[in-house]
Structure formats: structure tokens, C-alpha cells
Design a binder for these strands. Sequence first.
DNA 1: CGACGTGTTGATCTCTCTCAATTAGAGTGG
DNA 2: CCACTCTAATTGAGAGAGATCAACACGTCG
Lengths: 245, 245
Amino acid sequence: MTEHRCNQCPLRALPLFLANGKQELQLVQSLKMREQRFAAGETLIFEGQTDAPLYTLLSGWAFRFKTLSDGRRQILNFLLAGDFIGVQQKMGDAAAHGVITLTDSVFCVFQRDSLWELHRQSPAMGFNITWLTAHEESLVDDTLLSVGRRNAEERIATLLILLYKRAAALQADGGASGVAFPLTQQHIADGLGLSLVHTNKTLRKLERRGLHRVEDGRLFMRDVKALVRLADLYGDGKPPQRPLI
Amino acid sequence: MTEHRCNQCPLRALPLFLANGKQELQLVQSLKMREQRFAAGETLIFEGQTDAPLYTLLSGWAFRFKTLSDGRRQILNFLLAGDFIGVQQKMGDAAAHGVITLTDSVFCVFQRDSLWELHRQSPAMGFNITWLTAHEESLVDDTLLSVGRRNAEERIATLLILLYKRAAALQADGGASGVAFPLTQQHIADGLGLSLVHTNKTLRKLERRGLHRVEDGRLFMRDVKALVRLADLYGDGKPPQRPLI
DNA sequence: CGACGTGTTGATCTCTCTCAATTAGAGTGG
DNA sequence: CCACTCTAATTGAGAGAGATCAACACGTCG
């Protein structure tokens, strides 16, 4: 299969990327080394790896994670098409987290110093990257709020809603027929700081209550209102407007 | 009291800022609106606030946090001198988190669009900001690992080590006489996803075991090795080198 | 067909939370 | 100078959410 040229990148249709002009596309194209495919469950970046390149996720799912030496694993966030991978580690630094694919995936590979070239040759792209990085941090912030302060039901409701939104935004039908959902219950547990068993029991409880359904690797939202209420999310994910006393 | 000019900024002595040349300093100086002081416990940015400016923490401590509508609060990370505040929200966007000071503090205030100007006029500074943003994310990553997968003792050991390191790096004596430690136990609890009571009991346990001591707002490390072992941190905060199967 | 990964469920166990009460220090007003 | 109030730290007791242990079901695959 032939590789994409950046001006034909399927991601260009996404709102996030619409701003890129001809020059920016050529710049990115010139920095792109190649495309690379990974099978589901493959490791792109090992924890502690020192020479990891820069990736962009073109299609598929992946996740970032950290582990303790006895094997306990925490998934930091899930990666969908359009996400950057590897901005965190400075040149020459060890990767502070690993990255593993959830599905067969395609990545664009860039040299480590592309990040600097991008800033140098296009301040606008550099600004976008800062913003994307800050945005990814805010995803981790959301998860930290969940793991720190929500109970199991609330955490799962929150995860389902946020992942559903992100996945639906990438789908032509906007999620009307459910969205692809390649996580196992172990991934959900590792993403929410729960045990596998308790994750299973809580998922089943919500499912039996008619809030959602997972079937054949697809997620269906059956009672978004109830899920949103459980998650204590409001409207478009904006924080609650409480009196600021 | 007169305001600092950027070329006299006390933070310039820090390794992080050494790279800035004359031009960069002038640029930053031109974007700086003013200095602003806040008393301990004051709110710089409210959750949901739409017009928050950009700050740099010149001296003092602060923290970022999110709350649920019933009041449960999660502290996302602690802010020390040199940290940026407010890169997360895009222009016009609502702040996804609040910011409150822990001590009397001084901030440099910048206009919202300074971020873009900085990128436009100095790609090198833009690159630095991307990197700083990514670095802040990695701090949140660390906390998420703690909250998701470490027990109370391990979480507290981890927090003490990481905060001690950051605070000591800002002190002339490198922390030999302990470091200023303005957190109440409630802050520690909110930062680690624990209850106040359990935080207290766990702190006392570690203190009685001789691992650390908190006295008069100063933190003393008494058995770093034991704390590091508890936290499952290695050497310089690098991830454990385990056989990669 | 057996091995393996994933999902499911029941039965304990325990870490952490919640509730309650006490102490100590700092600040305030009379 | 002394009640009074408030915040922060402390400790005990009981309750509960979630962890751990154990078994089993089901589909895939070599």
C-alpha cells in the first residue's frame, strides 16, 4: 500500500487540522520520514527508551502508560487518530512512559528534531503543537480528577462518555451506530485505577441498568443523560457553574 | 516595591532559563504587563473563568485543581517558581481548572495572546514553551500513576520526594536545611486522592518510622533511601529498568 | 483437543473512608 | 489579660468500597 502525502492526509478533514495551509503541509511532508504499521498490542515505545522517534497516529488506537516495578500499570491516556506521540521526552531523554497499540494502527514517523524544525520554520505550527500538548495535558487532568475523586461507577461513566465523544468525532456518522471500542476490561481497569474484577462488576451493573452496551467491540450509548449525571459532567464537558463562594 | 525587569529576573539563575539571550529577554519584557501579588489562599483563576490571563510564578507556591459539583476536589499539580500558568486554555476558552496560591506569591502577568507573539517572534522560546508544557504534563502523569496504582504510604513517599526535589532545586543550599513546605494535610490529601484523616494517619506513621519530618512549615528528609524504596522511584526519577521480556 | 485470552460471578479480606471528639496555636474583641 | 473563634493536626471506632482469591464459561487458534 502506498503512503499518504500530507496534502492527502485523511486527518486533514478534521476541524483540528483545517487551518494548515499549503506551506505548512509541505513542511510537514518534508519532515515526515515514513509511515509505519503496527499490529494490535505491539509496543511502539518502551518505558525508559532513549531514542524514541516522534509519531503521529494516522489510524487506529493506542495508549500511553507507566508501570511500577512490580508490574502495576497505569494507563495515562488513550490515543486516537490525530494524536501526537513522544513530544514529552526531550531530545536524548528517556521516555517517561510507554506506548502500546490497541488495534492495528498506522503511524507517521518523524525525526526527533522535527519538533524544533517545525517551530523554527512555522511558528504557527509550533503554536499549534503547544496547544495540542496543553490539550493532551487537560485529558490527563480529567483522568486524574476521576481516579482521585470519583467512585468506580462515576469513573466508568466518565470514561465511556469522553472516549465515545472522541471516537464519534472521528466517525462519518458521528457515532449513530455506536463507535469502535477496542479496549478490554483490563485496559479500562488500568486507565481508571481499578482492579479488573471490580471493573467488570461495575460495567455489568451499568449495562444492566441500561446506560450503555458493549458488543462485538462496539460501544453503544443507551442513556447518555444518566451517564452524564453519574459522571458529573455538564453540557459540553465544561465544569459545573457553581457559585464561586 | 519596584518591579523586576526581565534581565534582572531572579529566575534567570535557574538552569531552565539560562538559555535565554538578550533578544528573548527583551521580547518577554515587552509582553509582560505587570507584576501582581497574591496573598496565601487567594484564587488566581476560577474554574470556568473565560478571560484568565497568562501568568508566570515568580516566587511562592500555588496549585492547579478541579472540583466536582458536590465539592470533591483534586489538586492536579503544585506550582513553584518558574512555572507557567494558563497555557492550557485557548484564547476565549473557559479555564478547565482553578489556580490558588499556597503562600504569598508574586506573578508576572501576560496578555492572553502573548503566547502566540512569543512563538511568532522567537521560535526558540516557542519551542521552550512546548517543552515546558510537555514537562508539566509529565508531572501530572507521575501523579496519575501514584493515585491510580500506589497505596497511601507509597503515594505520600512519592509526593514528598518529588516536591522536595523541586523545592530544593530552588534553594541556595539545595535543601540541606530542609525546604519550605507550605502544604496543609488537606492539600496533600487533595493532591493524592486520599481523605484528610487517612493522610494524617499515614504521614504520622512515616514520620514515626523516621522517614521524614514536617515542622514549622519545613520538610526534612530523614531517610531518603527508605522513601525512595517505598515510592518505587529509582535514581534520578527515571523509570525502573526492568527486563523488557 | 488443549492452551490461552477475555469475560463473569461469588466469597472473603482489607485498605481507606466517614463520623466523632480532642488538642493546640493564632487571631480578635472586650 | 482573657474568653471566644477558627484552622490545622490528631486519634479512635465503625462502615464500606473496592481488592484479592477462586472458579467457571466461552471463543479462538495452533
